[in-house]
């Protein structure tokens, strides 16, 4: 490997749709932050009603264990994700970056592409978003691009389909 100017992997060129932030926020609210906040609220109310003496230590405990992490996740995750998620269709390969805390950049050559799936969940449909999954013969080689706008997703899956046909395939 040339030590002097080892090339680096640049991020993919296109960001996902900005509406994805709202989608991720709602998702966070529904799956993690919402239940945590509700639990905190319920415990606080119960404590006020029945065990007022416990409030001095329970309050800070709830704040640190439930409220702050929930709010932090709700605020930070969508932004962080939006900064990371990106995709690009190159001449010979498709490239996607995803994740937030743990980040993944995956590149699969078009010659290995088997199928292109477009998925729209109920939440995603509300925001006009879609997830495109490009599958290869290997389970560790599937590329998932979440948070594309409907139009982009359609265009992308069409382009990948066409490009995959042009490139001589060796997808077993």
């Amino acid at each position: 490997m040339p030590e002097h100017a080892a090339p680096l992997l640049r991020p993919p060129r296109h960001r996902v749709d900005p509406r994805a932030r709202r989608w991720w926020t709602v998702q966070a609210l529904l799956t993690l932050s919402g239940p945590m906040l509700l639990t905190a609220l319920a415990m606080a109310v119960l404590s006020i009603l029945f065990f007022p003496g416990a409030l001095p230590w329970l309050g800070p405990l709830l704040l640190v264990v439930l409220v702050l992490p929930a709010v932090g996740y709700l605020v930070a995750m969508p932004r962080w994700r939006y900064a990371v998620h990106a995709w690009e269709l190159g001449e010979r390969a498709v490239y996607a970056a995803g994740g937030w805390f743990w980040q993944k950049r995956r590149i699969a050559p078009l010659s290995r592409v088997q199928t292109v799936d477009t998925l729209r969940g109920p939440l995603q449909r509300r925001y006009g978003l879609a997830t495109v999954t490009v599958t290869t013969a290997s389970t560790a080689g599937d590329i998932k691009i979440a948070g594309l706008s409907d139009a982009d997703a359609e265009e992308l899956s069409r382009m990948i389909g066409e490009a995959a046909q042009d490139v001589p395939g060796d997808a077993a």
Partner: peptide, 13 residues
């Protein structure tokens, strides 16, 4: 095709 050399600028996320 997704490599760049250090020093090259990249307009990106």
């Amino acid at each position: 095709e997704f490599l760049m050399h250090p020093g090259e600028s990249v307009q990106m996320p």
